[in-house]
Design a protein around this nucleic acid. Sequence first.
DNA 1: ATAATGAATGAATGTCATTCATTTTAGTAC
DNA 2: GTACTAAAATGAATGACATTCATTCATTAT
Lengths: 192, 192
Amino acid sequence: MTETDPRKDRILAAARDHFAAHGFEKTRLADVAKAADVAVGTIYLRYPGKAELLAGVLGEIEDRFAAAMDTPAIWALPWPERFQAVFRANLDLALSDPDLASLMGLAPFAMGVWRPGDRIRPMIVRHIMAGQASGALRPGFDPQIVAAIAYGMVEGALGELSVNPTAGPDQYLAQLTEAAQGWLLSRGAHAP
Amino acid sequence: MTETDPRKDRILAAARDHFAAHGFEKTRLADVAKAADVAVGTIYLRYPGKAELLAGVLGEIEDRFAAAMDTPAIWALPWPERFQAVFRANLDLALSDPDLASLMGLAPFAMGVWRPGDRIRPMIVRHIMAGQASGALRPGFDPQIVAAIAYGMVEGALGELSVNPTAGPDQYLAQLTEAAQGWLLSRGAHAP
DNA sequence: ATAATGAATGAATGTCATTCATTTTAGTAC
DNA sequence: GTACTAAAATGAATGACATTCATTCATTAT
C-alpha cells in the first residue's frame, strides 16, 4: 500500500538541490525537470506549482527536525536535561547539513501554501504538555504560546549562528537551555 | 541639507500600500508607479529593483520598531519592568497597524538585499549591555546571542499572535516577560 | 535665446512559470 | 499478436511581468 513514484522522488530531490544551490527565484523549473530527467509538464502532474514544490521540500525537512525531537532517548530524559537535548537535536541537525538552514530560509516563498513550523510546533507542544503533566514544568502557561516563543528562540539562534560563526554552537545551545530552564522549570532545585 | 524628494516619498508610500495589500509577487511595479503618479522607469532611478524597493519599505518599519524601544521613558525604567515595557512597545506597535505584521512577513523577498532585524537587534544589544553594566542582568552572556534569541522570541510570538487570536496579546506579553526575566535577571529578588 | 545637463518616460525586450494539444506508454480484451 | 482505451508524459506556445534604454522634457548656465 506504500506509494512508490520514482519520478516524484527524482523531482523532489532535484528541486531540493536547485533550491539549496540557487534560492527560490533563480531556480528554473526547466532545470529541475532536466535534472530529474523529466519534462516540465510532469512536475505539474505532481505539484500544482513552483511554490508547492518548495513546500514539498520544506515539509520533508521539517519532518526531520520533528523526528529529531521525538526519539525514545529524548522522551526518557528528565526535565532539566530534556531542554538541552531537544535544543541540541535541532542545532545538530541544522549544522549537519548547511543546505537545511538555507532551505528553511526559503519558507516564505511558499507562503500561502505552507506554514513554517506546522510540523515542528506540535512536537514542542507535546513535550511541554508532558512536562506540565509531570509537574516538572510550570503549570498554567499556554503550551501553544510557549511553543511559538520557543520555536522563535531556536529560529533566532539558528539565523544568527549561520551568519555569525564567531561564537560556537555551544554558546547558543547554552543560552537556549538557560533561557528555557529559567522560564519554564517549576520552581525547585536547578543546577547553579 | 535634509534631502527632499517628493517622488521618492510617493513611490515608497505607494509601494507600502501595494505590498501590504497584495504581497510581494502580486504587486506590479506598473501599479505602484501609477499610484505614485510616476513612470515605471522613475522607480528605477530611485531603487535598483523591486526587492530593494521592498527593502526600503521594511527599513522604515524596522526603524519604527527600533524607535519604540528607544524612548527616554523606557531607558529610565529599572530592570524587571524594562523587559515588559520593551516587549509591550513591540506588541503595541505591531498591533496598532495590521499592515506592519504582514509587511514584515515579506522580509525574505528582500533576501540578499536586506537582513531582517538589522535595525532592531542592535537596539536590543544596547539594552542588554546597559543592563549587564548596571548589574541588573546576569553577566557573561554574549549580548549578540541574547539579542538574536530574544528577537526570535518576539518574532515567534507575533507570528503566532497574528494567526491564533484565541489568546489575547496580554498572554503573549506575559510569557515573553516571564521568559526574559527568568533567563536574564541577575539572581536576586523577583516578584513571585 | 540657445545650448548643455540630467531626470523622466513608457514602449520594447527577455525571462520564466504555467498551460494544453499532441504523443507515448501501459493495460485490457479478443 | 492486434485493436482499443485511458492515463501519463511531453515540450512548444502563451502570457505576465521586471527590467532596460532610446527619446522626450525640464532646468540651469551661457
